[in-house]
């Protein structure tokens, strides 16, 4: 079971929910994956001891000037303007390169090789209560988060089949899509404010595009109005948990505490939340089998 915790709007409580959920099912030794590689915060709450690291690189072109005749074919095929030919010289802009390898394949002189360009780091270790932990960290100044997230998802540092909780970045564009694709369930964390509501609708559209079952956690419930409730009802998106607006929760989270540790009464509620998501995901699978048969 792979669960992705996402939101649309930032700061609604994705990491708060994802870390508490991981601790609530710690007897299943879940794997918590921090996919918010630009601003990863899961380690603050789960306190892993990092035992393994790996550099994530992207293959970028390196041109052998003794073979290159400046024909310009590489620049012509590159869709990202990452390689250009100016005054018989080839220039590479690593931060624009997507590592597709097309320039290498198309160079008639076979003058291009690929060299690794480091983009960031993967780290893994065991955290509180035996929760397994891995995260990606994008290097400062690097624009592309997606290759790090992709590498993190594929990193076989823990090999067995235990539940995976992916903590997504905010927004609705490519890093979010990379994080939730392949998940069995997406849990969207929102707050009932105009900003939270607007971004929730966009996030639901993304999840629907990928055809993944979805549920909602309403955080800071009571702060705003009823539109999130009405919308979820209309769209048939189940609200699986509500956490009231409570300054004490905010203070505990600010200190780096998870909800289930600071407020143990939440422990059974997070266990229940996990069970509900598993049921909803199984129900979807059963439905698919039926319609396929």
């Amino acid at each position: 079971m792979i669960i992705a915790v996402a939101s649309g709007k930032g700061g609604t409580g994705k990491t708060t929910i994802a870390t508490s959920l991981s601790l609530a099912i710690s007897e299943q030794s879940p794997l918590y994956l921090d996919c918010d590689v630009e601003a990863p915060n899961g380690h603050i709450f789960l306190q892993p001891s990092i035992e393994k690291t790996e550099v994530v690189s992207m293959p970028i072109p390196a041109v052998d000037s003794s073979l290159c005749n400046a024909c310009g074919r590489c620049a012509e095929v590159c869709q990202y303007h990452a390689i250009v030919v100016i005054a018989e010289k080839v220039l590479v802009f690593p931060e624009l390169c997507h590592g597709c390898g097309s320039c290498v394949l198309q160079c008639p002189q076979k003058a291009i090789e690929e060299v690794p360009n480091p983009l960031g780091l993967l780290e893994a270790g065991v955290a509180k209560n035996g929760v397994r932990f891995a995260r990606g960290v994008l290097d400062i100044g690097q624009p592309m988060a997606v290759p790090i997230i992709r590498a993190l998802k594929q990193w076989n540092v823990f090999e067995d089949e235990s539940p995976i909780i992916r903590d997504a970045p905010p927004g609705t564009s490519c890093p979010v899509v990379e994080t939730i694709s392949g998940a069995d369930f997406v849990l969207l964390v929102t707050e009932p404010t105009p900003f939270g509501f607007h971004d929730l609708q966009l996030a639901v559209q993304v999840v629907n595009t990928l055809e993944i079952p979805v549920g909602v956690v309403v955080n800071r419930d009571g702060i705003g109005d009823d539109r999130v409730n009405t919308y979820c009802q209309k769209m048939g998106v189940p609200i699986l948990m509500r956490i009231p607006l409570d300054f004490d929760i905010g203070v505990a989270v600010a200190r780096g505490e998870t909800i289930v540790e600071a407020f143990p009464e939440y422990m059974p509620r997070f266990k229940e939340l996990y069970d509900r998501m598993q049921e909803l995901s199984n129900a979807r699978d059963a439905g698919h089998l039926k319609s396929a048969g």
Partner: peptide, 10 residues
């Protein structure tokens, strides 16, 4: 601006 430190922030 946008949250994060990646492409839209840059």
């Amino acid at each position: 601006g946008t949250p994060g430190i990646g492409c839209p922030v840059i």
